[in-house]
């Protein structure tokens, strides 16, 4: 008799999938309206303004391609585009390399659920400090008289402080890797935690060594986690400007920094062009990653 109930319940659950009813429409309207007005409209405006005419201090709604031509002929802007892509790729690779082994340990090797939770919570706790403070915290670490140089000199590995540690591309990469690698660790550990331990046991019984098990079972099953993590990290790194502003001493200019300085000098049209380029870049990256994995299914 329970079977009866179950099948009938499934049937009633499959409610008719027709258009949103009146009540649903009212529930959705505020949220959708909010997003259209304050998210879609601003983005559309950015695209529109990128074709306006820029004079020294203001913009006029006369359509022109001038800002676009300036952007793609200027070494500064193209350099920023290239720097953005380079930093993004390096940080992405670094978060995978740094994060994967930790995720492997937490997700697969720690069998004790409590310890697993404690480790994951430990990874999240730094988020309770302001993002900007976490970025700033790297200055006393990496500086010429910073903690790292001091320790290295104390134990006699170096005699002169390493100056390239701070206010360089390296410091930006180190900072971003530390801040964003948790977004890589989380999804990978989640995926690894879902692997049925009996599969690995079975492979062991068949005489497979660790590397073989890793290559044939663990790595493929954790790939969706890597991709989801890559989406998080990419979206955040591509939109960055604060870390480079704080740790590069103006040496590293990302597209985000270009937008900030252009807005600062009221060059709205140029800022808009940089914004559109950044949007396209990000859209392409996310679309490519989403082709690999269905985000809605994995969450």
């Amino acid at each position: 008799m329970t079977m009866t109930a179950v099948t009938e319940e499934i049937k009633t659950e499959k409610a008719a999938a027709n258009g949103p009813s009146g009540k649903t429409l009212w529930l959705l309207a505020p949220g959708v309206l909010w997003m259209l007005l304050f998210l879609v409209l601003p983005l559309a405006m950015m695209l529109y303004v990128s074709f306006w005419t820029q004079t020294t201090f203001k913009i006029e709604p006369t359509l022109t391609l001038k800002s676009w031509i300036t952007f793609f002929t200027s070494d500064t802007y193209l350099g920023a585009l290239w720097t953005t892509v380079r930093i993004w790729l390096i940080v992405l690779a670094a978060t995978v390399v740094v994060g994967y082994p930790a995720a492997l340990f937490v997700g697969l090797f720690v069998k004790n659920k409590t310890l697993q939770t404690v480790l994951l919570v430990l990874c999240v706790i730094p988020f309770w400090t302001s993002f900007l403070i976490r970025v700033l915290a790297w200055r006393p670490m990496l500086g010429k008289e910073g903690a790292i140089n001091m320790i290295l000199m104390k134990i006699g590995i170096i005699s002169q402080p390493i100056e390239v540690l701070l206010f360089s591309e390296l410091s930006v990469i180190i900072g971003m890797t530390q801040i964003y690698c948790v977004f890589m660790v989380g999804p990978i550990a989640f995926m690894l935690g879902r692997i049925d331990p009996s599969i690995i046991e079975a492979a062991k019984d068949l005489g497979a060594g660790f590397w073989r098990i890793f290559r044939t079972i663990i790595l493929p099953l954790s790939m969706p986690g890597v991709v989801v993590g890559a989406i998080f990290v990419s979206v955040m790194v591509l939109g960055e400007f604060a870390t480079s502003a704080a740790l590069s001493g103006r040496k590293v200019n990302l597209l985000g920094n270009i937008i900030v300085t252009q807005v600062g000098s009221l060059k709205w049209a140029f800022a808009a062009v940089a914004g559109v380029v950044l949007t396209i870049l990000m859209g392409a990256v996310v679309a490519a990653l989403l082709r690999v994995v269905d985000l809605r299914k994995e969450l």
């Binding site: 027709n18 258009g19 959708v32 939109g239 807005v263 949007t279």
Partner: peptide
Amino acid sequence: FTGSGVVFYLIVLGMMVPGVLVGLGMAL
């Protein structure tokens, strides 16, 4: 309801788009 996928992604877009972009758009 039909169109739930579009609405879902419209809402999730809000947390995906970087702050500089919406900030700039809003200023414009």
